[in-house]
């Protein structure tokens, strides 16, 4: 009994429940004779395309600013970067890298100002962040409508005002990473470039944690009073964390979009923070602590669950149930994290 409790404590309820649920779904999938290689390929792709957005949570949590619900802030910067690269008709890796080069400074600036703001409202970062994210997305809707883009890829074919709701990337950066060194093994398509890029980002964040500034930022986030007593400028460290998080979000959406094949504008990024938040929590992170392993485990569990549940539920019940399950799981996990005692330390 004691061992069981220790085990649960160590693994944590979120991982245990989601893991168990996934296991049941896998058994069901096997019973229903759903082709496994296809599912595996899907899981790999989706882990790669969502992973960086989840990774964006890590610096914010480590710097003590909690879950970054203002992820859309970075996302719109990433979208702008991608749009500009398309506007200049840049395709392939050139287009991808141009998109990054435009998006990174933009998101760093946005993150800097957002970080300044968060420093004035310590303890309420998540509530305010959520609505900052919403406001940015809805404000950008007006921007998309008025933005001076001319490329026919971007604007409506029949000449209406503003950008399209979804922009196809087929002729530009569609799947540049996914197809890079991609190969098939036993029917499973491995998106090597995508996974490698995700791994690279993870490694960069991990490496940052090993630098002096990374260690200092972690200390500032773990215990503000301690940090002050150690002569650390806590506010500066928090801004650093937010900037990194916002930049990663911008990179994340570009990677996501190239894999998805479309840029989704207007209201599409509205709830984009929630799956990322849920994934990192499922991985075992808390409002105060997150590591790279949480990101990888969480993204894998969450995406695997979605991938496997779709065909299973399609056979057993209505297709829209998969979306419903996603809503319940992601919000349920966030709710769990918010109501945990240890989660209260932030305020």
């Amino acid at each position: 009994m004691e061992d069981l409790k220790n085990f649960i404590d160590k693994v944590g309820y979120p991982r245990l429940i989601i893991g168990g649920f996934l296991l049941i779904l896998c058994i069901l999938a096997a019973v229903l004779a759903i082709p496994i290689p296809g599912l595996l390929g899907d899981i790999l792709t989706r882990v790669g395309m969502n992973g960086i957005l989840v990774l964006a949570m890590v610096p914010a949590i480590q710097a003590g600013a909690g879950l970054n619900f203002a992820l859309p802030l970075g996302i719109v910067c990433g979208l702008i970067g991608a749009l500009i690269s398309i506007e200049f008709k840049l395709g392939g890796f050139t287009g991808f890298i141009t998109a990054l080069l435009v998006a990174i400074p933009l998101s760093a600036i946005a993150g800097y100002f957002y970080g300044q703001m968060l420093n004035r409202i310590k303890g309420q970062e998540m509530t305010v962040g959520t609505y900052v994210g919403f406001s940015v997305v809805s404000g950008m809707c007006i921007f998309w409508l008025l933005a001076p883009f001319r490329s026919p890829e971007l604007i409506w074919a029949y000449g209406g005002t503003g950008l399209r709701v979804t922009v196809s990337l087929e002729s530009t950066i569609d799947k540049v990473l996914n197809n890079f060194l991609s190969f098939s093994i036993a029917g499973v398509r491995v998106p090597t470039g995508l996974l490698a890029f995700f791994a690279l980002c993870c490694f960069a964040v991990w490496l940052f944690g090993k630098t002096k500034s990374g260690a200092i930022m972690n200390a500032a986030g773990a215990n503000e009073k301690f940090a002050i007593a150690t002569g650390i400028n806590v506010n500066q460290q928090r801004i650093l964390g937010i900037v990194l998080s916002t930049v990663l979000a911008a990179i994340g959406i570009i990677v996501y979009s190239q894999s998805f094949g479309f840029l989704q504008l207007y209201n599409a990024p509205l709830y984009s923070a929630f799956p990322a938040v849920a994934a990192v929590l499922i991985g075992g992170a808390s409002i105060k602590k997150a590591t790279i392993s949480h990101v990888i485990i969480g993204t894998f569990l969450f995406q695997a669950l979605l991938v496997v549940s779709l065909p299973v539920i399609n056979i057993l019940a209505d297709g829209s149930m998969s979306e419903v399950i996603r809503i319940i799981i992601s919000n349920g996990i966030i709710l769990y994290a918010l109501t945990r005692k240890t989660g209260g330390d932030l305020t």
Partner: peptide, 23 residues
């Protein structure tokens, strides 16, 4: 259980309940 974070919690709770409602 979420004193001091009521607003974000009630908001997420709304989303969560919406999922159950749809279910």
């Amino acid at each position: 259980k979420a004193k001091g974070k009521e607003m974000i919690t009630s908001m997420i709770l709304g989303f969560f309940a919406n999922g159950l409602y749809q279910l």
